[in-house]
Design a protein around this nucleic acid. Sequence first.
DNA 1: CGGCTGGTTGATTGGTTTCAACAAGCGTGG
DNA 2: CCACGCTTGTTGAAACCAATCAACCAGCCG
Lengths: 241, 241
Amino acid sequence: MTANLLALKLQSFARLSDVDQLWLKEALGQSRQVAAHADLVDQGQDPHAVNVILDGWACRSRLLADGRRQIVALMLPGDLCDPHIFLLDRMDHTIGALTPLTVAQIPGPAFQSLVERSASLAYAFRREGLSAIAIQREWTVSLGRRSGIERLAHLFCELYWRLAAVGLTDGGSCPFPLTQNDLADVLGQTSVHINRTLQELRSMGLVALRGRRLTIHDQTGLAELAYFDPVYLHFTQKAGQ
Amino acid sequence: MTANLLALKLQSFARLSDVDQLWLKEALGQSRQVAAHADLVDQGQDPHAVNVILDGWACRSRLLADGRRQIVALMLPGDLCDPHIFLLDRMDHTIGALTPLTVAQIPGPAFQSLVERSASLAYAFRREGLSAIAIQREWTVSLGRRSGIERLAHLFCELYWRLAAVGLTDGGSCPFPLTQNDLADVLGQTSVHINRTLQELRSMGLVALRGRRLTIHDQTGLAELAYFDPVYLHFTQKAGQ
DNA sequence: CGGCTGGTTGATTGGTTTCAACAAGCGTGG
DNA sequence: CCACGCTTGTTGAAACCAATCAACCAGCCG
């Protein structure tokens, strides 16, 4: 089951045949465990391998010289930790585990033959990349033009949709392992202020966040508050049930 | 000369042979003019063509329902308006001309044969894309964690470096056609505040900005203030003078 | 039990927005 | 040619959102 998360995710972008899914499964190598707060990028790794998160949450983050930290991307189960990054001579940011992680790899050659054999897989992978970039753009919009409460609401919407695409939501609620400190580093604020904003969202009856689980009580209300329009995620296909 | 801007830019990413440069020049089709403030994306266009800016500045921007605007990317002479975007079913943002523009196109098939014939061109194009993404990440960092004056200083540094890569700087100064309103939409602030921040940078003796031209008086001072580290641009090759 | 991490609260400070007005530059039409 | 309108830049005062500093509490684990 867990190995199919990637197929599930890619099906948001293109219809995959049974053969596609079989090939995908075969291409996935051994999975490994990464401890929370550990760095995901060990130098010794195959630079052409594609890393896939099977379980847990990771992030891409940048640290300024004086200690300020900004998380620039969140990687959820089913997400790819784009490998192209390794092509760059020097890494300009860190990929770290926010929770304990299960990560699988598709070796470089296996990935190559995958996109050569299947046009729909190639298409899906490309679209996945475009979606990731679009998410990055939308974060820029949030940080630049959305108020504190709108940002938080928007992030909740986005993460809920992304988790829904891989079947990890359950009747309006989803796992949410981020601490308020993590949220602060995602949204460019302090954890103190995240705390107060969160309370406001709660008191408005829009969400609940307890025990590492997020529950959205009023989807449309939250989306309206956040100016959330899921178009940018470019999930065109319905995820298989 | 103008047609070589793209070659110049790509040489920041990979060494290009004379043949590469010749092929590149041949691949470039007719250039067209776009008026300032016009939309760059006309529906009737070849969705597989690669657009290259030969002259002028353009931007990618998102408009929120209530009128707030955020510029999520700036495209300078020599830059590609990534074509993959057109693969997406619905455009989630606008590409607009900030100044009058000269744009050339590489038709889809020509681009395809280009990257097939030359490994260095393929490499350069891929690196260019990675650089664009890294810039997007750095903007996220700026908006999230840099103060107003740091943001402005950082943007100045980035644009100066990017213009230098295509030979458009001249002894510490470069063209700078953005209005304070544009700057506000880039940096997520109001033009009023941009104005005051700008005055502070001026009074610190770091920059001058007059007549659509930016002059940086103290490069290292500006970079230190901004926590600017050009690594993220990934210009590994020196641009051929 | 103590120490740690993560969450909560209050008071104060400060960076930015907002609103409003005005000056300077520029193109256009009367 | 000047007047007019429009865009761009500039300034001031007030209001506001979010950061800062500083406690303190709850839960968890060794």
